[in-house]
Amino acid sequence: MAHIRLDDVCVDLPVFGAHSRSLKNRIISAATGGRLAKEAGVTCVRALSHVTLELNPGDRVGLWGHNGAGKTTLLRVLAGAYAPTSGTVRIEGDVTSLIDLALGMEPEATGFENIALRLMMMGRSPRLAEGLAEEVQAFSGLGEFLDLPIRTYSSGMLMRLAFAISTAVEPEILLMDEWLSVGDEEFVAKAEARLERLLESTQILVIASHSRELLERRCNRVLRLEHGEVKETVLAEQPA
């Protein structure tokens, strides 16, 4: 059973200029002591502040807030990429992240190679990946183009491939940043249907969006983020 629990989670993102990251400045500041050391100190941005959260199967959670409110950071914590600076995170279940579809795609590699590489990065063994690859190839509808390096693809074709790969695995926990809409008219309909199926089957869905309307339609819980804090939880009606 998928389960997510965040306890008093804070994330402070250090902001490095070229300044603080060089060893020279570190040495100079050590030699001059006090004042300079303070100036050379790393500035931190509190991206998430004391977030406590428990998600259970059946939860359809919307994250809502302005730019920089912490939506993406929270998604990255849920993806297991960011460890919190303080607090604890427990994630049980297989996470699929649709935050960046083109993640880890290699422009020089062919469509076929990218399918295999990406599926492995998503944690599928080569044997499992091989089984899934056929379905991805068919769904992408790219046919012979899969033999070409993907740098030759149009951006539409690239998104089709990325979408087909990213949605090939049925997740237990699905993370999304905004609603996805890819490809031309014909593909959009196909993609929507596939996405709906994915949304249906996943145990937990977390989707970040600016659109209140979308979240209210899709989610049964909406969290409003402001300056990294979860301000209010709106319990929307169960999606029809």
């Binding site: 297991g80 996470v95 960046d100 993640l103 990065m121």
Partner: peptide, 9 residues
């Protein structure tokens, strides 16, 4: 970097 920032490997 891109992969490390978004997934858990």
């Amino acid at each position: 970097a891109g992969v490390i920032r978004q997934t858990r490997l």
